[in-house]
């Protein structure tokens, strides 16, 4: 049961991460496509700009995702390993 749930969550995370990478590439491309499109509408171009920005943030988040949680575990270990004695 326990390992079943854990496997399920891990699988789901891997799938979502993969999908997120794919979506990042797509969003990035779509963003540049919109920016590069020969349509002289500023609002349209701005959508492309925001898509590129979001994609960059997503890629950044994906790249450091594992590191963030490793850092949390490390910091928590600093705090949590030896909790201070009650007064």
């Amino acid at each position: 049961m326990a390992s079943g749930i854990i496997n399920f969550i891990t699988d789901l995370t891997v799938k979502i991460t993969t999908a997120a990478w794919g979506l990042f590439l797509l969003t990035w491309s779509v963003g540049w496509l919109i920016r590069g499109a020969p349509i002289p509408v500023l609002r349209f171009k701005r959508v492309g700009q925001s898509l590129i920005e979001d994609a960059v943030w997503a890629a950044f988040g994906l790249a450091i995702g594992t590191s963030v949680f490793a850092l949390i575990a490390y910091i928590a270990k600093l705090f949590g390993a030896t909790p201070p004695k009650p007064p």
Partner: peptide, 16 residues
């Protein structure tokens, strides 16, 4: 971790 990645996924969705 899953929640975090779902959040990232939502960021990456090409819909503004």
């Amino acid at each position: 971790i899953l929640t975090y990645h779902i959040g990232i996924l939502l960021y990456a969705v090409p819909y503004p």
